[in-house]
């Protein structure tokens, strides 16, 4: 399985997951009300610098963001049309900065540690009688599935191109859904074959 996790330990691996998440939350809270393009542009540049300090492997991970660029482009055009270019550029800068920062946390945190923080955050719900370990497990599986779905999509697009498929890439959506469902069945089997979902 492909992973959103960096092999070589970096300085960011050593910081506790709870601190990293808290830092992300604070950065978002402080920056989101601000509308300066310069400020957000600087934020994005600093985010790239952050990736630089994590090493070449982290920079390579940025390539897997290509599919997201398309959605950002669509958002940019829509926002430009609806609210002007300033709002469009601002939205794209904001989203890419925050997504990349969040991704830096995923890259440097083990799933177990993320699950632990989630369980801690979900404590109030547990008092209401909700099975919080199920929610936490589902969330960590979501994180695991993102790179996987991107890989399935990349393979399908390659297969499409290899047989001379045109620009109508949206035609791979149906096989994409089927393959994702098949894969989810494999994961369910794998979980069941090893005793089901963990009880914390």
């Amino acid at each position: 399985m492909i992973s959103l996790y960096l092999a070589t330990p970096t300085w960011l691996h050593r910081i506790r997951v709870s601190y990293k998440l808290l830092a992300l939350a604070l950065i978002s809270l402080v920056l989101i009300p601000l509308n300066s393009l310069w400020l957000w542009g600087a934020g994005l540049v600093l985010t790239f610098v952050l990736y630089g300090t994590l090493g070449g492997e982290a920079l390579k991970q940025l390539i897997s963001f290509r599919p997201i660029l398309w959605s950002l482009l669509i958002l940019l055009v829509l926002q430009w049309w609806l609210a002007g270019w300033h709002a469009g550029v601002l939205l794209v800068l904001r989203m890419s900065t925050l997504i990349l920062l969040a991704n830096a946390i995923t890259l440097t945190s083990s799933m177990d540690d993320i699950t632990e923080v989630m369980l801690w955050l979900l404590q109030p719900l547990k008092k209401l009688g909700l099975a919080t370990e199920l929610i936490a497990f589902a969330m960590s599986l979501c994180i695991r599935f993102i790179p996987l779905l991107i890989a399935i999509l990349d393979h399908l697009i390659d297969a499409w191109k290899a047989r001379g498929g045109g620009k109508q890439y949206w035609l791979v959506i149906a096989p994409m859904i089927i393959q994702s469902l098949v894969f989810s069945q494999h994961v369910a089997d794998a979980i069941n074959a090893r005793g089901g979902i963990p009880k914390q």
Partner: peptide, 29 residues
């Protein structure tokens, strides 16, 4: 705990990002 299946495709069996998490998953259960 009685009978264990090793899947044909390891990518279908391995769920976790790191080796230690993968190994301890079943035991936690």
């Amino acid at each position: 705990r009685t009978i264990g299946l090793i899947f044909q495709n390891p990518d279908h069996q391995l769920i976790f990002p790191t080796v230690i998490e993968e190994l301890s998953f079943g035991l936690r259960n």
